[in-house]
Simulated scan of single mutants.
Amino acid sequence: MTLKTLQLSKPDGLPEDFRVVCYHEQGTGEPLVFVHGVGMCSHAWEPQIAFFAKTHRVIALNMPGHGGSTPLPTGADLRDFVRWLGEVLDALDLEAVNLAGHSMGALIAGGFAITFPERVRRVALLNSVHRRTPEARKAVEERALQIAKGDMDVQGPLKRWFGESGAEQSARRRVREWLEAVDPQGYAVTYSAFSRGDDVFADQWEQVTCPALFLTGEDDPNSTESMSREMASAAANGTACVIREHKHMVNLTAPDQVNAVMAEWLKEAVDQTEMERA
């Protein structure tokens, strides 16, 4: 895959290279945009890019502070990442897209579908968090503080995200490489927004009328099955899917199953009238 670079418009008085977005693009047809999770990069979607580029124009973004994309300022929150996505789609001259996100990318995708419903044909949230328990919130906020201090713990995420099967260990090696290569500042800013983002749009899923897929792994300890089912129940056209015996990086560890589910999601009819009304 060839990495492309996009220049976003910039506020006056800032350097020409102030805001750069790096992304991969492949295929033709209806646009399908992917947004990865914290510490990852667009390569994390390789199984989906290869599969869906046969039928769609696939665009896998590197979110701010990842894969060469300019980070957002310290203190940026989930809504800032949602606005960033809107600017990227504007720069790509994309009006309405199919949108899929993983983990932090899922929070961005969900927030975008809620904020700009007219721009989303279908939305898919993979391994998304939703209304964490107080204990889970405390743990993730403590990790955000440690990361902000420069403590880049790689082993912790790998332990939470992967099981012991051969497929999971193969994916684990690649994910470790991405985590070790991520820009520390971009990682810290994004993880901070992630730690505070689970309830920003949590009460607004009933506003989403487009086909909405909520997929997670059965053994994901943080993006749980109950979270996906709760969001799917709240959305007007929501579907929950749980991949058995897999954890957080399910799109890498069970790509055939995930691709099959997403292919059905992409076949769901879109109510153009509802999009125009939105």
Rank of each mutant, 00 (worst) to 15 (best):
C22D: 07
V175C: 09
V154Y: 07
D80R: 04
P71H: 08
D220T: 09
H36A: 02
P211L: 00
S9W: 00
M231I: 12
G186A: 10
L158Q: 06
A148P: 09
V189L: 02
S223E: 10
A260W: 13
M152L: 14
A53Q: 09
I243H: 02
W161C: 02
V261D: 06
I59Q: 00
T70E: 06
N259I: 00
I49W: 01
V20D: 07
V20M: 09
L72P: 05
K267M: 10
M104S: 11
D219L: 15
L252D: 02
V21G: 00
L213T: 06
E218W: 13
F112T: 10
H130L: 11
T28L: 12
V21T: 01
D198Q: 06
L72Q: 06
R19T: 01
V82S: 06
E206H: 12
A202Y: 02
R132G: 05
N237P: 06
S233N: 14
P211I: 02
V182A: 07
D219Y: 03
E164D: 13
G27S: 09
R83F: 10
T239P: 03
A91T: 02
T216V: 11
A136N: 12
N222T: 14
R176Q: 15
A144H: 06
Y23C: 02
L14E: 10
A60T: 08
E230F: 04
P157V: 01
V140G: 06
E218R: 14
A144D: 10
V88D: 00
L158H: 03
L107V: 08
T74D: 15
I59R: 00
N222R: 11
E118W: 10
A188R: 03
A44H: 03
R229D: 08
G27H: 08
E135T: 14
S103I: 00
V175L: 08
R131P: 07
N62T: 05
P73Y: 04
G101D: 05
E230A: 14
E230V: 11
T239I: 13
L85H: 03
I49F: 02
R119H: 14
D12N: 12
A100V: 15
L179D: 09
V208Q: 01
S226E: 15
K149E: 15
Q26P: 04
M227D: 06
N127A: 15
T224L: 04
A232T: 12
T2D: 11
E164L: 10
R160D: 12
A106W: 07
N98A: 08
E118N: 11
V200N: 04
R277W: 12
P47F: 01
D93K: 14
E177N: 12
A235E: 03
W265S: 11
A113G: 08
M1A: 11
L107F: 07
A50F: 08
E177Q: 13
N127C: 15
T28Y: 11
G217M: 04
P221F: 13
D219S: 14
R176M: 14
I59V: 09
C210Q: 09
I243S: 01
R19D: 00
D93F: 11
P47A: 02
V88E: 00
H130S: 12
V38F: 09
E225M: 12
Q48H: 10
T2L: 09
V33M: 04
G105K: 09
W265P: 07
H248V: 03
V35Q: 10
P31L: 03
E87I: 13
G197A: 05
F51Y: 13
L8Y: 03
I108L: 09
L213G: 01
L61Y: 00
P221H: 13
R137K: 15
M262A: 09
E177D: 14
L126S: 12
I108D: 01
